[in-house]
Every structure is written in C-alpha cells, then in structure tokens.
C-alpha cells in the first residue's frame, strides 16, 4: 500500500514535532518516576567509578595545564603594567568561578554524557528497555536516577580537584616565571579568595552534572534502534550537553554577578 503525498508529508511533520517535544516527554517520564535509589547501590557504585574515579587522572592533568596556561597568558598582560602579583587573583577567580567547573563539565560530557547515550541506545537496540518494562521496572527510574545521583556526587568532587590542581598549575608557572615566591602566592590567594566564590563554582558544577546526565540519557532514549542511531545519539549527547552547559554557565554567571560575586 503506497501512501499518498499529503499523507507522507503529515507523517514527516508529526515525526519532526515528536522529535522536538521529546525532551519534554522525557523529563516528564523521569520526574514522574520514583528514584528508588536505595535498591540501586550496585549501579550507583558503577557510575561513581565511571564518572568520578576513572575521570580523575584526566581532570588532574588538564587542570594543571589549564591553570598554568591561564597564568602564562595573564603574566604576559600583567607585565605591561608591572602588577604581576595580581596574577594570583586572576588565576584564582578565573578557576574557581569558571574554568574549574567548566573544564570538569567538558571532560564529563566526553566521558559520561556520551557513554550514557550509547549505553541506553544499545539497550534499546537489544530490547533490554522492553525487558525492563515487562519485568515491571520503570526504565526511566532504573536508567536515569543512578546516573544522576552518581554525577551529582562525582562532578562537584571532581571540580574540587580541578580547582585545586588548576591553582597549583598557576602557582607552579607563576613562581617559576616571575619572582613571586610560593609563600607569597599562597598568602595572596587566601587573602583575596573566599569560600562563597568557591561554593558558587561547586553549585555551577552540580547544575552542569544534572544537565549532562539528562542530555545523555535523553539522547539515548530517543536514539534510533540501530548501530548508526546509537552513534548519532552519542554525538548528539555531546553537542547538546556542551550547548546546555554553556547556556547555563552564562545564565548563572549573570545571576551570581547580580548578587555581587
């Protein structure tokens, strides 16, 4: 039976609309499902390991480099006005407010976000999602909440490491490139930086963690049921996560600036 042209057009259009509203449907499913995290210790540990412990080395290396890059660029400019000690402020605030949370979010997007999408997409191909349903287990609850909980713990903790190692990187570079002693660097750091700035960065990172997880899972659930579909889902997850993280960052930065930080 061949479909007529208007019929085909209608189908294509409804297809596009369904795709466009899917994130809303997905969020509805997730938030109406019960988390039941107490039963999910095994999954929780697995994702803590995947998103937290296994990401730590990359976070440390990138943060060290990132901190020294910021310091290097800063020193070049500060030299012009002979105010090299302000490099401490620059590195400290840039890292705690922006680069710490953002670098960790980018690393986690690549590691966790795409892995979530690929995992759920593959489960769809293998009919595992159906199997969960007919076993009376809500797939949204089983597949999203453990990841969300693990990311909510892992990302802020990674950000603490990211902050610390970025500042260390900045310190190593500035103390070797200018005549700032490590003691002077540390003294200046503790004088200008405060707990609130640090905490606001951690809050940012937690928001990023939620966005990355939801984007990854949503792209997994909406992936087409074949190998290419899974690949596209993983790619989409990365693109969507980066987009959401940057938008959320802009909004939160505005908000925090507005309240005086």
């Amino acid at each position: 039976m061949q479909n007529s042209k208007p019929e085909k057009l209608k189908q294509t259009l409804t297809g596009y609309i369904a795709q466009a509203v899917y994130p809303v449907v997905f969020l509805g499913e997730v938030f109406s499902a019960k988390p039941r995290l107490a039963r999910r210790k095994r999954e929780l540990l697995y994702y803590l390991d995947l998103c937290g412990v296994k990401s730590l080395p990359v976070v440390i290396i990138i943060s060290l480099l990132m901190g020294s890059i910021i310091a290097m660029q800063g020193i070049l400019q500060m030299r012009k006005v002979g105010a090299e000690i302000f490099i401490v402020d620059l590195v400290g605030f840039a890292v705690l407010k922006e680069f710490g949370p953002l670098m960790v979010a980018m690393i986690s997007t690549g590691r966790a976000g795409s892995a979530f999408a690929a995992e759920i997409g593959t489960m769809k191909v293998n009919e595992e999602i159906y199997a969960l349903q007919t076993m009376g287990v809500n797939p949204y609850s089983y597949l999203v909440y453990p990841k969300l909980a693990a990311m909510l713990v892992a990302i802020p903790v990674l950000t603490v490491f990211g902050d610390a190692f970025s500042i260390l990187g900045g310190m190593i570079l500035s103390t070797s490139a200018c005549d700032i002693t490590p003691a002077a660097y540390w003294a200046r750091s503790t004088a200008v930086l405060n707990g609130t700035v640090f905490m606001l960065g951690i809050i940012k990172s937690a928001v990023f963690g939620v966005l990355i997880t939801l984007a990854g899972c949503c792209c997994g659930f909406s992936a087409e049921g074949n190998a290419q579909g899974v690949g596209r889902g993983a790619t989409q997850a990365v693109v969507a996560s980066i987009f959401l993280v940057v938008i959320a960052d802009a909004v939160m930065t505005l908000l925090f600036t507005f309240i005086g930080y």
Partner: peptide, 29 residues
Amino acid sequence: YKSFGVTYQGGALLGSLTVAENVAFPLEE
C-alpha cells in the same frame, strides 16, 4: 507485569549484569 514472564527474540539480557544477576533481577525488584 508482576505476573508476566516475557522472553524476547534475542534474549534481551541486561548487558551490564551477569547471567545470574539477570535471573535474580526480578526477584530483587
């Protein structure tokens, strides 16, 4: 679904769990 037993054409075992954990899964739930 609690009174259902369903099998799928390809098995549809949860890939992240062992065979025994798969069989135990509905019991744990």
